[in-house]
Amino acid sequence: METLKMKDWGLGLGEQVVIAGPCSVETEQQIDSLCESFKGKSEINMFRGGVWKPRTRPGNFEGLGEEALPLLQKAKESLGIPICIEVANTAHVEAALKHDIDVLWIGARTTVNPFSVQEIADSLKGVDIPVMVKNPINPDMALWMGAIERLHAVGIRKLAAIHRGFADPYDKIYRNKPNWNLAMQLKLELPNIEIINDPSHIGGKASMIKDISQRALNFGMDGLMIETHPNPKEAWSDAKQQITPNELLSMLKEISFREKIDMETEIPANLKELRESVDHIDQKLIDLLSDRFHLIDQIGAYKKVHKLSVYQGARWQSVLADRIALGVKKDMSEKFMKSLLVAIHDESVKRQEKQIASKDATAKIL
């Protein structure tokens, strides 16, 4: 959609956005305690609080509902900063607007359902309010972009994305695997959109928040949304991934918000020279890959003539082990080498299959 290239995006909070507050609004005492800790702290730009909590299974705490909204109004008056909450349907939107909530976000479980997103979008038609969209649970770029497009189509212009990671049952490190490349792909598709990182949901553990936050900022993300609780061990939901206000403020002093530079006018001379060298090497890499794949085409043609299978397991395992070892000797990680080789091998298989399916494969054998 061409209209999504517009520059009227963003929350208007500056380049170092920090959104903090509890996973769930629980009690007046909890909110008062957080406000006391955050009062006068310019590092905190927005206060978040879970009102309706869509739990995976019933029986867990599902939020105070509309009862929590007056407590958030009180926090807004105390701190003098915007308040944001998650909404999942029209009733939530109406309650949020009635209680003067400043910013809404659509959660991962809602983003996966275009019907629900459209319902929310329709209920916001004609309303000038910022909306943030979390990535869907599964790594589906179309759903993420589709949710943003639906909101844009009804006139919502103050839009941002929240990167909270993606479900991966095989990943043992993260609660939700970051898949940084997908967040960066969204930025390529929508260059002017702000992306807020949610390290609490990505890590699932308080101990991981700092490192994930720094990496998000290294990737050029525009801010952080961090779950904060006065006593995380006693939290009514997601206790393991929340930190105290003091821990948050201390962490913000230790991490580094990266300066962004204009690609056309602000690149320092030394950096420009290094980038030009990288561009030159990239060109050579592409030329070498092109040469390699032309050889693969010939191998595919040979296999067709001699009725050989495309996949040769012993050969592939030998190449994989040898190239990984060579890469490690050249200061590249084993994980990177394996990912690179698997991508090249997948493309090689596809090209050989194409050769076998063609009618003139024999002509391509040297």
Rank of each mutant, 00 (worst) to 15 (best):
W144H: 05
H306P: 06
A147G: 07
D102T: 15
R351V: 05
S309F: 00
R150W: 10
I19E: 00
I286R: 00
G165M: 04
G220N: 06
A96Y: 00
G59H: 10
E254V: 08
T3G: 05
W9E: 00
L159R: 02
K210C: 07
I255R: 04
A206F: 02
Q298D: 10
S42N: 11
H163D: 02
K125V: 09
L366M: 11
N135M: 08
L248Q: 01
I365E: 07
A153Q: 09
Q118W: 14
D198A: 09
F257E: 01
D291A: 15
L34Q: 05
A91R: 09
L69R: 02
G300V: 08
T265K: 08
G10N: 01
Q317K: 14
E36Y: 12
K53P: 00
C23L: 13
I31S: 01
L224V: 08
L4E: 03
D100G: 10
I81W: 00
F38G: 01
H163N: 05
R150T: 06
A108E: 00
A108G: 12
I243W: 00
D102L: 13
D211L: 11
E62G: 10
D171H: 09
H152Y: 15
A142E: 06
L248G: 01
I261K: 07
D128N: 13
I281R: 02
I31W: 03
S339L: 13
K134I: 05
H99F: 10
E347K: 12
L182F: 13
E62Q: 12
C35D: 04
I129N: 10
K134M: 03
L341F: 12
I193Y: 09
Q355V: 15
E43W: 00
Y170E: 10
V25G: 03
I267R: 04
P139A: 11
A88F: 10
K359D: 07
A161Y: 06
K158R: 11
V310T: 15
L72Y: 01
